[in-house]
Design a protein around this nucleic acid. Sequence first.
DNA 1: TCCATATATCTAGATTTATAGATATATTAG
DNA 2: CTAATATATCTATAAATCTAGATATATGGA
Lengths: 110, 110
Amino acid sequence: MDKLTAIEAFAALAQPTRLDVFRLLVKAGHEGLSAGEIAKTLTIRQNTMSTNLAILARTGLVTNQREGRSIRYFADYQGISALISFLMEDCCGGNLEICQPIIDEIACGR
Amino acid sequence: MDKLTAIEAFAALAQPTRLDVFRLLVKAGHEGLSAGEIAKTLTIRQNTMSTNLAILARTGLVTNQREGRSIRYFADYQGISALISFLMEDCCGGNLEICQPIIDEIACGR
DNA sequence: TCCATATATCTAGATTTATAGATATATTAG
DNA sequence: CTAATATATCTATAAATCTAGATATATGGA
C-alpha cells in the first residue's frame, strides 16, 4: 500500500455516510447489500449515496458486482487489512506486547 | 467509541503529514519523539507541525507529556485499537474466517 | 420498441480544511 | 529579570469537499 492510497482510504472513512456504509457492509459480510438497500437503510438520497459508494470503491475499501439492475456492494476485507497493516507497520519491531492489545481487540473478543 | 470520535480520527489520518507522524510514532514505540524531533524528521515547519500534533492528540490517536522545554509525543495504542475495533464491529458475527486474515495481517507476520 | 427501475454523472453553491506568517506562552539558564 | 529555546495560538487566503438538483446511462420486462 502506498501513502496516497492510504490517505484516500482514511478520507473515505472520515465522513458520516461513508463510515456508516462501510460498517454496514462489514456486518453484512459476504452477502453484501445493493446500493439501493444501503441508501434506504441509511436514509440517504440516491445520487448522494452513489457518489459516496464510488468513493469507497475507488479506495479499495469496498467492491461491487452487478446483479441485474442492481449493483451489490461488499466490504473488501483485504483492502481494510492492507490499510491497517500499513498504518501499524513496524509496530512490533521486537515488541509484540505493544500491538498485542490491538490484535486482541480486533479478534472479536476471542 | 462514538461515531464522531471515529470520524475525527480518520480525518486526522487522512492527511500526509499527520499520517507520517502517526506511523513514525508507531515505530518509535514507548520511547516516543519530541515535537521538534518530529518536525525536523519530516521537514515540516514548527507551527504547522504543532497544529497537526494538536489534531492528532485531540482525536486520541497520540498522547503527549511535557519534558522540560520539550513535549514528547507517543502513539496511543489503546486509541487506535478502539478505532479499529469500532470500524470492524460485528465483523465476525459467527464467521471468524472473515476477519481472521485481518487479524493475521496486524499480528506482525506471526 | 417503449417504459420502469436502478444507479451514475455533471454541476454549483456552501462548508470545511490546510498552510504558514506573525505572535504568544512556557520552560530553563545565566 | 533577561535571553534563548521549544511549542502553541491567531489569522487569512487558498484549496478541497459535501450535498443535492438535474440529467444521463444501464438493465429488464411488456
